[in-house]
Design a protein around this nucleic acid. Structure first.
Lengths: 213, 213
DNA sequence: CCCCAACTTTTCAGAGACTCCAATGATCAA
DNA sequence: TTGATCATTGGAGTCTCTGAAAAGTTGGGG
């Protein structure tokens, strides 16, 4: 391996730019902070910023990398006798109950949400990420079940699971934005998860059950 | 009433700009056509285009105005003894069976989809519209059921109905983009609608049933 | 130790979306 | 006809993002 000096410096500059940028965004909002501001604050040229981040939105969402594979990962990790939806509900409940920052249950998340809320470009990007999550999930479902390409079930089930995940995250975002504290929101969302499970049909609840052998 | 000359001319210029723009977009794609191109072709200044359309994306999606209220309208128009989801499914089946342009079942829709497909800005705007549809639907559900503000049921049901609508439109878009003809896609999608109805729980299927007089 | 090749960063130039403002000219109401 | 309203226009300017070329840095081979 032996990571060279060059590699390390690259990683460091990238990280520095990202950190400084999110700092500026959280303090002043997304639109008011220009790429030139970020570059100046990071003591780097504008094009260097663009060298690491394809767009201003990417700069903002750099922290949330790895979210795209989350649902797929949870489904792949389902236990014996457990269905795809059951696994997602279980993981989601665990995160919510633990008041985990991974689902936005943390102090200061309201500021994060507020910046997104008032910047259309960021909301768009957020939906684009959610779309990626669902596409990734559908792919995983096809792999796990070995469904033929013309079978629409994986598409539909992925949509249902995505509904659970998306509304959970949306409600958390809204409640945090409204100024409630993480513990309170955690309790509310646990009830919400029960409601959502109650609205799922048995077919959905039993899709892609892992054999218990 | 008596619409004055000024009003008429305004409407005409707006329409002319929109028509010419969509023509250019369909022929050359979204990114390659600049606002200056549109303005030139419409024999108007760039600022006049911005006077009517706040952004380039609005110019493209001008035709699809009225889509936002569609689901809400369908739910409001449900018959006696019919639930919200049932009404949406009925209307959707009618449109699909009639091979209606309202749901994209028409010659040339593949070109439209293709332009959207290769322009991230347009895909973002499409998601933003879908979000508006769901928000509008949730509002209608609250009005129709008189549910208190802290009741999460309208949110959840709106999400389920939106799932039906959105996957329907997405599948139509994908199939048309893949080059299939409208009649063929119509038949496929009718089967898909049956599948989706089968995945809905009874609670969802019976939400907001209109009393039979 | 030095030099070369590869890579990174910077500088420079520019396209294009979008905004703000002041000026112009057509339409309207009286 | 006159004065007010409003669509339209041109121009200057900001900001995101792209591309090419110049300048600087780093690692390896002689």
């Amino acid at each position: 391996m032996a990571e060279g000096l060059r590699e390390r410096k690259k990683r460091e500059t990238r990280q520095r730019i990202s950190d400084i940028a999110t700092g500026l965004f959280l303090e002043h909002g997304f639109v008011t902070v220009t790429m030139a501001d970020v570059a100046d604050a990071a003591d780097v040229s504008v094009n260097t910023v663009y060298n690491y981040f394809p767009s201003k939105e990417d700069l903002f969402f750099d922290r949330s990398a790895g979210i795209v594979e989350r649902l797929g990962r949870w489904v792949r990790g389902r236990g014996p006798g457990e269905s795809a939806v059951a696994a997602v509900l279980r993981e989601l409940r665990a995160e919510v109950e633990a008041v985990s920052p991974h689902v936005g249950l943390m102090l200061g998340y309201d500021r994060f949400m507020s910046v997104i809320h008032e910047a259309p470009a960021l909301r768009s990007r957020l939906w684009s990420i959610q779309q990626e999550i669902q596409d990734n999930l559908e792919k995983v479902l096809r792999e796990e079940t070995g469904a033929p390409a013309d079978d629409s079930a994986p598409t539909l089930i992925a949509g249902q699971i995505n509904w659970v995940h998306q509304t959970t995250m949306a409600v958390i975002g809204r409640r945090m934005l409204a100024g409630h504290n993480p513990d309170e929101v955690s309790r509310e969302v646990l009830l919400l998860l029960d409601d959502m499970e109650g609205l799922l049909s048995d077919t959905v609840l039993n899709y892609a059950v892992r054999p218990s052998a």
